[in-house]
Amino acid sequence: MARLTPDNQQRARELIALYPHSRSALIPILHLLQGQDGYLSEDGMGDVAELLGLTAAEVRGTATFYDMFHLEPVGRYVVAVCTNIACMLQGAYRLLEHAEERLGVAPGGTTGDGLFTLEDAECLALCGNAPCLTVNWRFFGDVDLGRFDTLVEDLRAGRLDDEVPPHGTLSRVQRATGLQAGGEGAAGAASEGVPAALPTHLDLDTRRTTAAVASMDAGHLEGGT
């Protein structure tokens, strides 16, 4: 695993076409690469550098600035427990310690079976449902110790694979069109519709990991009237 697949090469070129300057597509393309391999490999980043006409150092230097990018392989599920203030006030460090014991790894570590990587995360903006965590960046709120154990069991058994995609998957909805307004993308001319390798619509209604919006549900905003 390493270089961008032909499909992803094509998608990368479509991303480049959305920007006035090609380097702007670097971070979206790195997400694409991480979605493909679960992390950013040297070969993959080399491929991206070639595609964008950048040096390996420019790509690596950018990638290392951002917390979401992993330059080493990680577990199948990256469990990020928020310990920032809103979650801390609701017992997040107890949850994190419990997670360490349950998984047998410290933050930053990966379990021997390669299933779980544990992280101590900064605020994930789900503070109405503290303490919260994400698994491969999908949200779970109001996580008590029992719910954490259930979550781990469900993940282990593959019961959540529909709502928790493989690590690195950013968006499962693809943009349906290139630039249309007559602006010149970095590819030269405004591109026409792009072939949809991914759906352009997804039944987002069936997803259960919508806790950020759940915090907005009945009872929590009615007082705002």
Binding site: T134, W137, S171
Partner: peptide, 8 residues
């Protein structure tokens, strides 16, 4: 970036 559902 940590808001994939929002991005989708």
């Amino acid at each position: 970036g940590e808001f994939p559902l929002a991005i989708e």
